[in-house]
């Protein structure tokens, strides 16, 4: 029988995979993708807890929608930053992104 535990476990595993991706990648776009995985894990938590703890209202789904909005904004700004830096550095390697370091 699938219960809330299973959904939370799935979200935890997705979040862990995202954390590992953020640490182990060099490509800035790949790190953005890992962050998206983590945000999706959080959304699963919101919706699952909404369904299993208080199914009569939809506040969890509302918050998941706000998370999706913020994620869309974050991805667009992040990719614009990456493209802008690529124009100067000809690289998307994070170890080359040291423009603000002196």
């Amino acid at each position: 029988m699938i219960g809330l535990n299973h959904y939370l476990l799935l979200a935890t595993i997705l979040f862990g995979i995202g954390v590992y991706g953020v640490f182990s990648k060099r490509n800035a776009v790949a790190i953005l993708m890992s962050i998206e995985l983590m945000l999706n894990a959080v959304n699963i938590n919101f919706v699952a807890i909404n369904k299993f703890i208080q199914p009569s209202n939809t506040i969890g789904q509302l918050f998941a929608i706000f998370v999706i909005v913020v994620a869309a904004a974050e991805v667009s700004v992040g990719l614009a930053l990456i493209i802008s830096i690529y124009r100067h550095k000809k690289s998307v390697n994070l170890s080359d992104f040291n423009l603000m370091k002196w």
Binding site: T12, G16, V19, Y20, S24
Partner: peptide, 21 residues
Amino acid sequence: NLPNPSLKTHLWGACLALLLI
């Protein structure tokens, strides 16, 4: 999309992710 060459970041990432999970 090559992984980061330094082993240290992999270990940190794997430790953190496994600990979390």
